[in-house]
């Protein structure tokens, strides 16, 4: 009861205040409103953006989150670098295939056997991490050849990866809206028992969702490796997976499933990119950066979800 009243008081101002605070920060930060900085922000959306596409589908399908996507990206980066000797197209195809397969295996357990998604994906992350260590012997994997640099190219002033992100996001959103899989994902996320009783192929839906998530995480890995001209265990610096989860929540997807959209998640990705950029320009220490980013994400996620609760 008290919480309800608290919400009523806090709610109208909540998101607005946070947004104004960020705007004020932006105005008073030197170098924020420049074309170069805008490009930098957009470019920094690529990796988190790709991972969060898959994360959105997972959350909408009712499987909460995957803890394995960041590691999938890391190991994909390694596979990509190591397989460049077969040529760029083959390397990309092979890497995405491996990513999709690792996702699909988790999806079979989660969708088909109703295993707990958090446990399965944490276990998968541990296994993948182990494979990554064995694969790289802890060393940095360097590319053979320079064919990958085309992925770092710029088109009309923006990196190729950003176009790839846009295409992926639109494709995923179209899958949700215009294909048979889309409504099935929403229905399963809303009520798994009802979906089963209604005869929806829940095993296959779960497998498809996790396979797509694995594929988009691999693509993130491919672009990460190209950007860094190498791949190693340190590639994702630990925040990739959490940033993606935060982006999905800021985008308003329901934690329990049944609601959410990839395009809204992209707004979440943009907000995270802007905040990361601001704390960087302001010259905060790494610790302070993480703290501030965390606070902003909490504020947004809470604000968005309070609003939805009121509408429901």
């Amino acid at each position: 009861m008290f919480a309800l009243q608290l919400k009523r008081v806090l709610l109208p101002g909540f998101t607005t205040v946070t947004a104004l605070l960020i705007l004020w920060f932006a105005v008073t930060t030197q170098g924020f409103f420049t074309l170069d900085n805008a490009r930098a922000i957009l470019a920094s959306m690529v990796f988190v953006g790709m991972v969060s596409i898959g994360m959105t589908l997972i959350m909408v399908s009712g499987a909460f989150v995957s803890m394995a996507l960041a590691t999938t990206a890391t190991i994909s980066a390694m596979i990509f670098m190591a397989s460049l000797s077969f040529g760029l197209p083959v390397a990309i195809a092979l890497t995405v295939l491996v990513g999709a397969l690792t996702g699909a295996l988790q999806g079979v357990a989660i969708g088909g056997w109703n295993a707990n998604p958090i446990i399965v994906t944490i276990a998968a992350a541990a296994v993948l991490e182990g494979v990554a260590v064995a694969f790289s012997h802890g060393a940095t994997i360097n590319p053979t050849g320079t064919s990958y640099t085309v992925l770092n190219a710029h088109l009309f002033g923006l990196p190729v990866g950003l176009y790839a992100l846009a295409v992926l996001a639109l494709t995923a959103e179209s899958i949700l809206r215009f294909t048979r899989l889309g409504p099935m994902i929403y229905l399963m996320g809303d009520n798994r028992a009802a979906a089963r009783a209604a005869g929806l192929p829940i095993g296959r839906i779960g497998t498809a969702v996790f396979a797509i998530a694995g594929a988009t995480a691999s693509l993130a890995g491919i672009f990460m490796a190209s950007f860094n001209h190498s791949a190693s265990l340190l590639l994702n610096r630990g925040t990739l997976g959490y940033d993606a989860i935060a982006a999905v929540l800021i985008g308003g997807a329901a934690i329990g499933g049944g609601r959410g959209s990839v395009l809204n998640t992209m707004i979440g990705v943009a907000i995270i990119a802007i905040v990361s950029d601001l704390v960087l320009l302001r010259g905060f220490t790494t610790g302070e950066q993480i703290l501030l980013k965390g606070l902003v994400m909490v504020a947004f996620a809470v604000g968005v979800h309070l609003r939805q609760e009121q509408r429901a």
């Binding site: 099935m184 809303d190 009520n191 049944g258």
Partner: peptide
């Protein structure tokens, strides 16, 4: 619990079993 998709729309609920 085992029938309707409560937060989805009426039309989605009506069509849930004939998506194919």
């Amino acid at each position: 619990g085992e029938g309707l998709f409560l937060s989805r729309s009426i039309s989605e609920n009506l069509l849930a079993t004939r998506l194919r």
